[in-house]
Design a protein around this nucleic acid. Structure first.
Lengths: 354, 354
DNA sequence: TCACCCTATCGAATCGATTCGACTCCGCCC
DNA sequence: GGGCGGAGTCGAATCGATTCGATAGGGTGA
């Protein structure tokens, strides 16, 4: 590691015998500089091994850091086990990367569902995307507001000065429930994603349900009930296959008379777990029990079935969020966006057994 | 959005009737400031809605941005479908997050396996971790060197001024191969992760093999051959279940005499695909064919088998890399680290059929 | 030949903090 | 009472670029 300090724009300018401002013009790609001068500056830069203007100094002046935060509620390993979260972020980067804007991960830790203020406060941010687990009362929101960092919330929260990008959660589950009702299902159970991030799992009481933290979780239950009336809801502790399997075992390993004829999982990952549970209990799908999911995720490891699900345009949702970020950084205020979903009937739902 | 410019440290200092330098002292948590003064400054800050010192300005002076880049070769969706990559990054953040340091994702795109220079050049970086797909001839390495950004390479590349953190790839596959040899396997095939990121799949020619881009891929083949002699290697186009299944079908759907008695996959994800292929072909594991993987990853959706595999401490590898980053940023030069691996015999390997 | 305009370059202010040496009190000790 | 030391505060330089108004010089048209 050379101890001599690295060359700066001023060093380069001096060697090229031009003013620093001129050298700056060269690197900013301005056309208003004579080719000969440009050459001289670039040659000087090459000679000194100058790697281009310091991003930090540039940011200070231009009020842009090229960094966009991505809030992923839980810790990394949990969040990225969810293929939907991954696809969403992939969509975001697809839009942002070509502009030289990077995504900074802001995970929570075991306790908190969002990033700590210490994390937020020290890092330069042009904008923030709430990619998962957006809470309306997140103290981070207030901090970002004060710093003037614009926020895009995917699937929630819906707050005044935050741009919302989401899907028709309600309509999706309404259609799914109609599909099930049409097949004669009356005893339907819902396997829900976490209502809050406190590690709770089990049947959901009305009190707990009233304190649901996440918009889409609430909406997806309401959609089912809009068609089928009140249904039992089983909460999982995480959006993961194991949790779905666990829930499935509890719901399905009961006397026939009590067993739901259909299980609606709030995500495909949970549905995959329910399918495993059914298989483990020797139940045939859909003859003995129908299973449906949500997302339309690609799960290449799924057994050779086509899951009945509500397909959402996850990657597109990410791209929309990415574009919203671009607009906000440019000073425009984009409209909220709600994307369409589509019922995708597969082989895991069938007529209710009698 | 209020149009008035946001308060700065100077504004706060003025309101509190102290010098900006004193106000700075307050926010840096210095003890050398009188409690009464501190109160006055904090009160002024609260009144103005000042969210704390601007991270960018702070970075300029302190030469720290609090941002560490994570190079993930492919695009996000591909990289994060790999549970090992996820666990690795989780380990990195576990160490970095508490220090208020954030991870910035640097994905490649369809064509390039690393981040583009445009991405790198515009973003502030204290250090970079090559999390996957480290190439020795990556032009980004040169750029980072010139900028004075220290680099930690996980699993590779091994380059002079880059800190290496890896595992005993070779010894792991040697032990695995010995295990198989002990069970009487002689006809063994390897399903390899991509040798280069060019979408190639199929049998590997000696020429192509010589041009293997990734250290660990090369080493893991050599380990097998060290014990079993030359083996056929089948390259996949990506480290994904579908690719493993595809490879498995080709390798196993042949006359019995040509069929390998054991398949060594270079990752558990690929092994899972091979298992699916075997199941699809009606082959019993391990009676008809043995299957082994690498990583010791948690695949909760795996059929109820325990995969024979080489377990590596992935999360610990991430933590070690994280600590190396901390050292480098502090100006220390940590040693390279090579972590132990352990053969984990499961239920997917058994005596070779005769 | 002169006024004018355009192009290429330059100077200086600015972005918002940090940092270190200097300075001012004030109390204490001799 | 004078000198000394330490606590608390302040000034000014600095980090490395960007940006805009100013300027010099050369070419054009009348």
């Amino acid at each position: 590691m050379s101890d001599r300090s690295r060359p700066t724009l001023a060093t380069v300018a001096a060697l090229a015998e031009v003013a620093p401002s001129t050298a700056s013009l060269v690197f900013s790609g301005s056309t208003r500089v004579a080719p000969a001068t440009r050459e001289r500056v670039l040659a000087a830069a090459a000679e000194l091994g100058y790697a281009g203007p310091d991003p930090v100094a540039r940011s200070l002046r231009s009020r842009r850091s090229g960094v966009v935060g991505a809030v992923i509620g839980e810790r990394l390993a949990s969040a990225f086990n969810d293929p939907v979260a991954v696809q969403l972020l992939d969509g975001v980067t697809e839009v942002l990367s070509p502009l030289g804007v990077g995504l900074l991960l802001l995970p929570g830790d075991a306790d908190r569902s969002g990033p700590t203020l210490a994390q937020l406060a020290h890092v330069p941010l042009d904008a923030v995307v709430y990619a998962t687990c957006g809470l309306e009362d997140d103290p981070a929101l207030d901090h970002l507001r004060r710093r003037g960092v614009p926020v895009v919330a995917v699937d929630g929260p819906r707050v005044d000065d935050v741009v919302f990008v989401g899907i028709q959660d309600r309509r999706g589950t309404v259609e799914l429930a109609r599909h099930l009702a049409g097949l004669g299902h009356h005893r339907v159970a819902v396997v829900a994603m976490p209502l809050r991030l406190d590690g709770t799992r089990g049947p959901v009481s009305p009190e707990r349900r009233a304190r649901t933290h996440y918009r889409e979780v609430r909406e997806r239950v309401l959609g089912v009930e809009e068609v089928l009336g009140a249904v039992p809801v089983w909460e999982t502790a995480a959006n993961a296959v194991e949790e779905g399997e666990r829930a499935g075992r509890v719901l399905l390993d009961v006397p026939l008379a009590d067993r739901p004829t259909a299980v609606v999982a709030q995500s495909d990952v949970l549905a995959a777990g329910v399918l495993r549970a059914a298989a483990g209990l020797g139940l045939r799908v859909p003859e003995d029990v129908s299973v449906a999911g949500f997302d339309g995720a690609e799960l290449p490891w799924l057994p050779p079935v086509r899951l009945t699900t509500v397909a959402q345009p996850t990657a597109e949702k990410g791209r929309v969020a990415g574009r919203a970020v671009i607009d906000l950084v440019a000073g425009r205020r984009p409209d909220d966006v709600v994307l369409d979903v589509r019922l995708s009937v597969g082989t895991t739902t069938g007529p209710a057994p009698r």
